[in-house]
Design a protein around this nucleic acid. Structure first.
Lengths: 196, 196
DNA sequence: GTCTATATAAGGATAGAC
DNA sequence: GTCTATCCTTATATAGAC
């Protein structure tokens, strides 16, 4: 059996390459170079190129699914509180394992069947749960009455720059990030006090 | 010289494939099949695979640059009006030529030098102009005081689902889309009248 | 302007020596 | 567990017949 530490190193290098160049444009030879091996040696640690992609995609899908389950289970939270918790979830996941999340975000479409369908199902479940919270907030009159689908995708998309752009060394504090994104999503761009 | 109508057909098919599978995963053979030609025949109409990508990327970059120039030139608009005009610009471009914009949005990174650098420069210019408007609004007290970079990227990202998701047959009216996205970005999620 | 045939390079993955 | 050598497939692009 293969060295598990070495395997982790390969997975991380792959996530970085998948993020920077995309899955199809990343070759096994290039990946091998990154971890100072020959391409053939990689296969002592991983089964195939796609197996790496599967690991990255489903690990991250599970993180989001688990986060959503926690939010749903929290009886004390209203719709607004749940949305705030989900904003925190997205930022936490983004700052925790940036390269994996970035790769996961865009490269899942290169999964082959049946994994592709399974992944899409998990993604749809997450979106539906998110949309349910938005709809609930609209029905309760807490959220501005809007098309929940437009809301859902606009909000989910607004996180995407985090994955593309955020680097630890950019020195934006994750607490500040959370506060400002919550502010923007909940309260919008306009000031409440245009006179001051 | 090649038939220009045929060339347009090839460019559109390529844009669609680049959006669906990405640039590296799209082969000339597959593209040829889409327009019912053999791969070698494509080269009577286009110079290379990357030339197609260049066309898509720079055509769209120019659309955004021109739109920004118009907004900047409009003296009557304040910061809020300019942001609204830019929201309209993004939606108009997205609904006008969806596939091209999608390809442009993600696949520019596969450009080779010196085109890659040129493209990045145009993109940076656009972002800086957008950020200037946000900063202006904050200084005037019209916009909530926030980190302009976080604002900028959150807003720009929030448009991205349009390119991934929007299809004409989804029957969301583009006027409604504009209104609701403006609402969300300017006024946020929370209702002004939680009691009604 | 489209075809067949082909040049040339690079891809994922395996076999077998060490 | 890593290597060299290699298999097989696919990629972009060109040459030249029609």
């Amino acid at each position: 059996m293969a060295n598990s530490l070495r395997k982790q190193e390969i997975l991380e290098a792959a996530a970085r390459l998948f993020r920077d160049r995309g899955y199809p444009a990343t070759s096994m030879r290039h990946l091998a170079e990154e971890v100072q091996l020959k391409a053939s040696s990689l296969y002592n640690h991983i089964g195939s190129k796609e197996e790496i992609l599967k690991t990255i995609c489903f690990d991250n899908a599970r993180r989001f699914a688990d986060g959503m389950t926690d939010v749903q289970a929290n009886q004390e939270l209203g719709a607004a509180g749940k949305i705030k918790a989900l904003i925190r979830l997205h930022i936490q996941i983004a700052t925790h394992d940036l390269t994996s999340v970035t790769a996961f975000n865009d490269e899942w479409r290169h999964l082959s069947e049946p994994h592709l369908s399974e992944f899409k199902k998990m993604r749809k479940n997450y979106e539906n749960a998110f949309k349910d919270i938005l709809t609930q907030g609209i029905e309760e009159g807490i959220f501005r009455s809007q098309n929940p689908t437009i809301l859902l995708y606009s909000i989910l998309s607004s996180f995407r720059w985090l994955y593309d752009w955020f680097k630890p060394e950019r020195s934006i504090d994750s607490k500040q990030l959370e506060e400002e994104m919550t502010n923007l999503i909940m309260n919008g761009l306009l000031s409440n006090n245009p006179s001051e």
